[in-house]
Each structure stands twice: as structure tokens, then as C-alpha cells.
Design a protein around this nucleic acid. Structure first.
Lengths: 336, 336
DNA sequence: CTGTTAGCGCTTTCAT
DNA sequence: ATGAAAGCGCTAACAG
């Protein structure tokens, strides 16, 4: 077992526990010679401090939590990558929790985190989250909290997002300019700010081009893939089917692809698809899929950096940061 | 701050700290009535136990670590998903560490974990890892350790892998049967067991079909994408270029795609590619890419389950489990 | 059934 | 420059 502790070390060295502790933390109270001896012995005995004793005493955990809906998703995987990078630079540990788009999971996870297990929390809400009392409560216990991508709409809090409205607008306009007359919109959730903003961009782009917003072309998708496939199939099987699809998340674009394949709709000849997507290989593998690509890795880095500023109280007073990064439109299906 | 602790709770209730503690842990020593009172008050005061005090005292962390080369990778993202599922069922927390294919990172991470921060470790080695002293040392401190996918070749340890040799064999045979006469192999590392086994399968498949193994067709790739692109380009620009590529990891298949695109080699007419890959959308987006798909999610689940059996000492004596799961060959480019 | 007590291993005053 | 001692919040003997 991991059993070299300060006591054994100090006995071996003929020093007191506190001196050894100070030497290891490079305190100015300890002579250089002693420090050297201590360090050498610590190395020799393979000493590793007990993190729990330290955390208990110092009331900090050197750990942050990341709470996300899913991990097998290009956006979140890249975001985590960015978060980990910053955290490892800072010497922090990262606990990851998946909510699987289930509010109950999110709630209980956040509740657990109130015990002081982490010094800060990064979270992207799940699609069901409407009530954010659990997060208010966490915030009240003094745990710094940064939201990224999927952020609450009715809470004053630090956020890192992308330009969802503008991207939704540009995506829709891209389809219109490519000649689409009937553009459908696939939405993921009733609650998420990203969905609202992206859809608002969609609607405003239609209006700008004097196209009436048709509620029948706005599909509220679910968390069940099978159901979504049916909804999309129904949409695309109609006589007055759309000739363009704006998918607010990658998953729905993929589902649309399947359905088009299934019912033999040619992309992009008969229907064009644009989607928010972080499928890095899309350009290569799906030459007909235009995408709105979010800077997922940067989002992760920015979120973590902001969180650490808050943890280290390097952010001023009551200031609440709202960082907005730019997505990029990657056109592919316009080349006929 | 998170400041409701047992002391305050007990004062509020007029009970001793230990009684409250026992009540919360549902001890048989406490009367039902008292338990109810305690639970109600804990709820009311929003009590959350301090995990560090508990871990320090009980010498268990209810936490496991996952150490992987990268996260923005379909295989690992899916594996993590499976791991998280099992961990959350068990009520465990999951710390994630990325080595970024860098041995030094792996080494220092493992060293840190000797302090008792976690009750067990799941690891997939990085491509540089040859010396595994750091892992032997961790194992010696009594921390249960399970390797998955990228496992050490010279260590008796529990592992969860896929049938790498057979898959390499089948992949290569698939190309031969599709008519390829010169099959190249793209390898990731000199050290990894997965690479060795997959390549052995490749070589044996060639031999079976009376094709001589040509060292010039075996490309040792690096950790740098640019370099790999050059290596592949060089390979495919030769007059006697191969008409088939077996990529031992997904990344190298993608790179091959880029190069083929770049130098206008038609897939699959002029060259066929098969790869280990967990790109879930591949079937849809890349109809010309045949894949060996590993059951990544299952690997994650199996690894975590095995680890928990070890943590709970439900595994017999000195028994060392070696679990091998089956990959599936998904043919796509054979339909001409 | 409830309470007292002694630590877990570490950090941090405060003495010396 | 070093050491003694208190205590972080919790658990688990052991008493009663």
C-alpha cells in the first residue's frame, strides 16, 4: 500500500514532521541543506503526499469538475481536450461527469459537488434543464462556476459561448443563396439557449429574404434517435418537402443524411444540408455537408482559463465574464 | 461556503456527532425515528459530507483514474463513455488524464496517483511507452490496475483488448480478396502491442496468399501529422505504388484519404483502404472506407467492470484476467 | 440505542 | 532553523 507518510519520513530523517512538511513545500524557514536531505529521502522512499489530508487541511482540492451531456461527441471531446490542457498546466485534476441529457443526473451530480470535492465547475447544460436551482445553490456555496456552450438564459453567470445567433443566420442564408426555397430547421430542445439563438438566426435570415417562417418546417426533435429519424423521414416524404435543412446540432445532420440515403434524396442536388458540426473529418468524408464549425478546443481552453481566474480570484470584484467566440462557416455543397 | 458539517448538524439536533454520522450512514445502531429526524435536518441544512475527511479516514477515495493518450478520438471517447457508465452505477468518481502520447506525462501522472488519490486505474499506454517501471511501481503500492487496448507486452497484468491479430489478418485478406496485389501497412508505433499484433496479422495474411512481405510497403508513422502525410504521399507517388492500404489506426486512414484526394488517386478504383476505425458515421459519410470496428464502448465497460471486481476483491486470488473482445469487419468498398 | 474518544495525514500557528 | 501541538471533518472502536 501507499504507506510512506510524513511520519515515517521524519523518523527516517531524525526530523520533526512539521520540518519535513515545510522542507517539502520549500518553506523559507528551512535551511537549504535540510531541504536537500529531505528531498533526497522523499525520493528514495517514493513519498507521495496524501491528497486527502492535504485537501482537508487546506480546504482546497486542486480539482475541477466538468459536467457535460455526453462525451462521444466531437464538440464535447474537443472541449474536454482544451479544458484538460489548461488544467494540467495549472496542476489541477479533472473530474468528468456525464449527464446523458438527463436532468436528474445533472441535478444529483451538482448536489454531490457541494461537498467541496472540487474548487470549481465547468458545465454545459443538458437539453432538459429548465430549472437551475441546483446551480444557483452550488454557486451560493461559493464554488466558482463557468457555463460553456449550453448556458442558462435566466441567470447572471460567467459563460463561454459561440455566436449562435449569427451562425444560425449565416447558415440559413447560405442555403437560401444556394437556391433553397424551403428551408427546414431541426431543433434539439425547447430549453437550451443555443437552440433558441440558432433558431432566431434562422427565422431572421428567412425574414430578411422575404421568406415566411413556416412552423411546419421547424421540427422539434427529441432525445431518442429513432423518433428523430421518423420525424425527419416524415418531413422529407411530404410532397411539399423542404429543399434545405438547417440542423442545429451535428447529430441531427447525421440523421438527416441517413434519411436522405434511405428515401433516395440526392444531396445536394435535391436537398442541401448545413449543420453545426465538429466532425473534423467532414470536409474529407462528406463533401456535400456544409458546416458551422465551433472552435470547440478554444471554448474548452477559454472556459477553463476563466474558471481558474475565478478560482484564483484574479477576476475583478463582481464582474461577470461573458466570452463569445466565433464559429466558422465551411461551405462545401455550393460547388455544383 | 460549503459549511454545514456534522458538528453543526449534531448541535442543531441535540445529538452527538457520531450518532448523526451513523444515522446518515443508515447504521443498525440508530433508531428509525432518529434516522428520520437526522435525514430531515440534513436535507434542510443542505448537508453534504466532506469527501476528503471521509476518504482520509476510510482510506478509500471512491474514485478511479482513466489515463489515455487522447480524448478527441472516437475510440477513446466511446471507451470513456463505457467506463463512466459503470463508474456512475457504482457511485464512483472518474478522474481523467491525457498523456498526449507523451511518455513523460504518463510517467508523472502515474507517479501522482501513488498518493492514494484513486482506488484503481484504467490505462491505455501511449505510443512511446516502452519502459513500464512506473506502472510496476504503482501496482506494487497496491493500486488495482487494468490495461485496455494498448497494453504492455512484457507484464503479467489484467487486460481488456480486441482480437488485434485476427483483425489485422482479416483486414489484409479483405483487400487481397478485393483484388489488391500490393498492400501497404501503416503502423503507428514500434512499442505498442496493438501495432505488433495487427502487423503480424497483416504479414501472415500476405504469406497465406503467397505474397511476399515487402518492407518498403510497411510505413512506420510518427506522432506528427505533417510528417505522416509526407510519408504517405511518398508511398503513393511511387510508380510501383500500392493498390491497397491497411491502416492500423483511424488517424492514418484519414491521412491516407487526404493524400489520395490530393494526388487524385481514386478510391476504391485505384486504391482501397481499410482501417481500424470507430468513426461511427463512416458508413454514411465514407462509403468507400471499409473498417475494422472495435467495440469501444464495450471495452470501456468491461475494463471498468474488471477494475471494480479487483477493487472489491471479487476476483479470485492471484488470477489475472485477460479479456479479449471481437472487432467487426465492416466491408464497404467491395461493392464496385 | 447513543455518546466519548482516538485518530486518518497533513498544514500551520506558535514556541523555542 | 526546528519542533510541539492543534485541528481540518469524518469514522469506528469502545463504553455505557
Amino acid at each position: 500500500m501507499s504507506n510512506t507518510n510524513l511520519k515515517k519520513l521524519s523518523e527516517e530523517l531524525g526530523l520533526s514532521i512539521s520540518s519535513v512538511s515545510k522542507a517539502l513545500r520549500d518553506s523559507y524557514e528551512i535551511s537549504a541543506a535540510t531541504k536537500k536531505r529531505v528531498l533526497a529521502m522523499a525520493e528514495k522512499m517514493n513519498y507521495q503526499p496524501n491528497p486527502f489530508a492535504s485537501s482537508l487541511r487546506r480546504k482546497k482540492s486542486i480539482t475541477i469538475a466538468v459536467v457535460i451531456p455526453e462525451i462521444a461527441n466531437n464538440f464535447f471531446a474537443l472541449a474536454i481536450d482544451g479544458i484538460q490542457l489548461v488544467a494540467q498546466q495549472k496542476g489541477y485534476h479533472v473530474l468528468t461527469y456525464l449527464t446523458h441529457e438527463n436532468f436528474k443526473n445533472e441535478e444529483s451530480t451538482i448536489k454531490h459537488l457541494q461537498g467541496g470535492r472540487v474548487d470549481g465547475v465547468l458545465i454545459s447544460l443538458c437539453r432538459d434543464t429548465d430549472d437551475i436551482q441546483h446551480l444557483v445553490s452550488l454557486h451560493e456555496t461559493g464554488v466558482p462556476l463557468v457555463f460553456f456552450d449550453r448556458v442558462p438564459e435566466r441567470m447572471e453567470c460567467p459563460t463561454v459561448t459561440t455566436d449562435d445567433y449569427e451562425s444560425g443566420f449565416k447558415a440559413t442564408e447560405h442555403l437560401i443563396q444556394a437556391g433553397c426555397k424551403k428551408v427546414a430547421c431541426l431543433s434539439l430542445s425547447n430549453y437550451l439557449s443555443i437552440t433558441h439563438k440558432r433558431m432566431k438566426g434562422y427565422e431572421d435570415a428567412l425574414k430578411k429574404h422575404q421568406i415566411k417562417v413556416d412552423p411546419k418546417l421547424i421540427i422539434q426533435c427529441t432525445n431518442d434517435n429513432g423518433t428523430n429519424l421518423q420525424l425527419i423521414k416524415k418531413l422529407l416524404s411530404r410532397k411539399d418537402r423542404p429543399d434545405g435543412i438547417f440542423a442545429t446540432v451535428e447529430k441531427l445532420a447525421i440523421s438527416s443524411y441517413y434519411v436522405c440515403n434511405d428515401i433516395k434524396l440526392k444531396i445536394p442536388e435535391q436537398i442541401r444540408i448545413i449543420s453545426f458540426s465538429n466532425l473534423r473529418t467532414a470536409s474529407l468524408l462528406a463533401p456535400s455537408l456544409s458546416t458551422i464549425t465551433q472552435p470547440a478546443f478554444e471554448i474548452g481552453k477559454e472556459s477553463a482559463s476563466l474558471l481558474f481566474r475565478m478560482i484564483e480570484k484574479k477576476t475583478f470584484g463582481n464582474r461577470i465574464d461573458k466570452i463569445v467566440l466565433k464559429s466558422s462557416l465551411v461551405q462545401r455543397n455550393s460547388s455544383k
